[in-house]
Amino acid sequence: MAGPTRRLTNPALFICDVQEKFRPAIYEFDKVVATTQKMLKASRILNIPVFATTQNRARLGETCSELGLDVPGGIATRVHADKSLFSMWTPDVRKGLSSLPTPVECVIVGIETHICVTQTTLDLLREGHKVYILADGVSSCNKEEIPIALARLRAEGAVVTTSESWMYECMGDAAIEEFRKIVGLVKETSQSTRESLQTLCKF
C-alpha cells in the first residue's frame, strides 16, 4: 500500500527583494522578515527549492542577513539573483525553474506587494504556474497599496493565503514524515505569526 503523499507536489518558495536597505521604508518590514524566516525553515523541513532576488544590489544592498541565504549553515538557494526588472521572472529564475516539473506551485513573500510581488505573480501565472501569495509575508511602503494589490491578484487567479494555511496545505496529510517538525515550527513561531497577522492582514 502506498504511503501518504503531500497535497502540493511541486512547491517552490519565492523571496522577493527582502533587502536591509528597505527596512526603514516598508510598512511592518520586520513582520515580513519573520514570516520569511518561518517559510525558510519550512522549506528546509519539506525540501522545497528557494528562489530569491535582490533589486539593484549595488545600490540597495544584500538580502537581510538574518535570513541566512547562501551562507555556511544557512539556506542554500537554487537561485539568488540580482535584477533590474521589477518582476522576479528573470533569466536566472527562468533557468532555475525550468529544471522542475511543471506547473510549479509558487509561494511568494517579499516586497513591494503592488510592484515586484504583483509583476512576479502576473508573469508566473502567464507561464501556467500556480501562485500563492502570503498575506502575512508581503508589504509595501504605503500600507494602503497592499489590499488593492492583493485584490487585483486574486482576480488574476492567484491564491491569497497565510503562511500557516499554506504549510498545512502543502503537507495535506498528518501521516507524512515531516508533519511533526512542521507542527514544531508552528508552535515555535506562534507569537510572531500572531503579530504578523494582526498587522499585515488587518485591512
Rank of each mutant, 00 (worst) to 15 (best):
L100F: 13
S87T: 15
R94V: 14
S43L: 06
L85A: 15
P91T: 13
K95P: 00
S65I: 10
S99H: 01
F51W: 08
H80C: 07
F51Q: 04
L40K: 03
T53M: 15
L67Q: 05
V71Y: 01
D92V: 03
L46D: 09
V50I: 15
T54F: 13
D70V: 06
L85Q: 15
A52E: 05
R94T: 09
T63V: 08
W89Q: 10
A42L: 08
G61F: 04
G68S: 09
T90R: 13
N47D: 13
L60C: 06
L69G: 11
M39V: 08
E62K: 07
R44M: 09
L40C: 03
L60T: 11
A76V: 06
G61D: 11
A81T: 06
L69E: 04
G68I: 02
T53H: 06
D82I: 07
I75G: 00
Q55S: 10
D92K: 06
R94K: 09
V93A: 07
R57P: 14
S84L: 15
G73L: 13
G68W: 05
S84M: 15
I48M: 11
R94F: 01
R59D: 04
K83C: 15
S98W: 06
T77N: 07
E66W: 01
W89N: 12
P91I: 12
L46A: 13
N56G: 10
A58W: 00
A58S: 15
L60W: 03
M39L: 15
L46I: 14
K83G: 15
L60F: 13
P49Y: 06
S65T: 09
G61L: 09
K95H: 06
Q37W: 01
N56V: 14
G96M: 05
A81Q: 03
K95M: 07
T53K: 04
G68A: 08
S87I: 01
D82G: 10
I75Q: 06
D70A: 04
S65A: 13
G68R: 04
L46M: 15
K41L: 07
R59W: 04
E62F: 05
D70I: 03
Q37M: 08
P72T: 00
R57K: 15
F51A: 00
R59S: 07
D92G: 03
F86M: 14
G61A: 05
I45S: 03
A42N: 12
Q37S: 09
N47H: 10
F51P: 05
M88V: 04
D70Y: 02
L97K: 01
I45Y: 02
S43C: 12
L69A: 09
V50E: 10
W89F: 14
A58T: 13
C64R: 03
R78W: 00
Q37F: 03
D70L: 10
R59C: 00
V79H: 07
M88D: 11
A58E: 15
I48Y: 01
D70E: 11
C64E: 08
K95F: 02
G73Y: 02
V71R: 08
P49F: 07
K95T: 12
S87G: 10
K41A: 12
V79G: 10
V50T: 09
T90E: 00
E66A: 02
E66N: 02
S98Q: 06
P72I: 00
T54A: 14
W89C: 11
R59L: 13
F86I: 14
I45R: 05
G96Q: 04
P49G: 11
I48F: 03
F86S: 14
G68V: 03
E62I: 01
A81W: 02
